[in-house]
């Protein structure tokens, strides 16, 4: 059975303009890729290589200067609200309770309050957030706040979710359990995830394919497949072919730093 394409870039070019268009800073120079529905993709690359810019293009905060972006097989010019986005910082609104924070995307879509409330309440338990609905974000730990942030992006209703280094601020142990939690959620919900990270282990553990972002401007997107079956355990990373791939990825990233 052929799977449907969730997201595709067709010769996408993008540059930022500085000094009123006098200087152009090229970021992407003709990028092509296709992501099937239900895939888990991670994107690694050094800072400033254009990973976040790519996310801004997918969410619709920026428009490509050439080429096209298709979401679920349809070329969308206005992509705002078409994909879910989970930022690096949780960006929960401190004056809203957890319940109200999770309701935000539904409110914006115009779902009646009572209905939105019921929908969120029914999901809190699945997300390991039972009993937190009336708490404020300031009362929750970093890991719990990221769960709320993920729930909020799921409630955007889109099948494509972009996660921008969501666990980078967490301590190592919390981070590991959040990674396991995220895999569990992904397997359950059949969403397409794009996940930016700096951490090679994280990329290997989570994703099926890894996109390597070279230094901007990027004219060719290198990708590697992770040779691991699912479900995965963290100790699977010790397998020889994975360890080899890890060395390769680290070399790739190092090369960019040395250049």
């Amino acid at each position: 059975m052929e799977k449907k394409i969730a997201l595709s870039f067709k010769s996408v070019k993008f540059h930022y303009e500085l000094d009123n268009g006098q200087t152009k800073v090229p970021i992407l120079d003709g990028i092509d890729f296709e992501i099937q529905d239900g895939e888990f993709i991670t994107i690694i690359g050094p800072s400033g290589s254009g990973k976040s810019t790519m996310f801004r293009l997918v969410t619709g905060l920026e428009q490509p200067t050439a080429g096209s972006i298709e979401v679920n097989g349809v070329e969308e010019v206005n992509r705002l609200s078409k994909v879910g986005y989970m930022p690096q910082k949780d960006l929960l609104l401190p004056w809203r309770s957890i319940l109200e924070n999770a309701m935000l995307p539904l409110e914006i879509k115009g779902v009646p309050k009572q209905e939105a409330k019921e929908q969120v309440l029914s999901m809190l338990e699945e997300f390991g957030l039972k009993g937190t609905e009336n708490k404020f974000p300031g009362n929750l730990s970093g890991g719990m706040r990221q769960r709320v942030s993920f729930l909020r992006s799921v409630l955007s209703g889109s099948n494509v979710l972009l996660l921008d280094e969501p666990f980078s601020a967490l301590d190592a142990i919390t981070r590991l359990s959040m990674q396991e939690w995220l895999l569990e959620q992904w397997e359950k919900r059949n969403k397409t995830l794009l996940f930016i990270t700096h951490d090679v282990d994280e990329a290997l553990f989570l994703s099926g394919r890894i996109f390597i972002f070279r230094q901007a401007p990027i004219s060719y997107l290198e990708e590697v497949k992770v040779p691991l079956a699912r479900p995965r355990k963290i100790r699977d990373l010790a397998q020889p072919e994975v360890a080899e791939l890890k060395d390769y990825l680290i070399d790739q990233l190092r090369k960019k730093v040395a250049q």
């Binding site: 905060l61 986005y85 935000l104 995307p105 914006i108 879509k109």
Partner: peptide, 26 residues
């Protein structure tokens, strides 16, 4: 950052004013 997050949810100018600006200004 907050403004852009709301925009990715499809927020209008009015949404941003009522759900973000007003509570922040309080």
């Amino acid at each position: 950052e907050y403004k852009e997050l709301l925009l990715t949810m499809g927020a209008t100018k009015k949404d941003i004013f009522l759900k973000l600006s007003v509570p922040s200004a309080l």
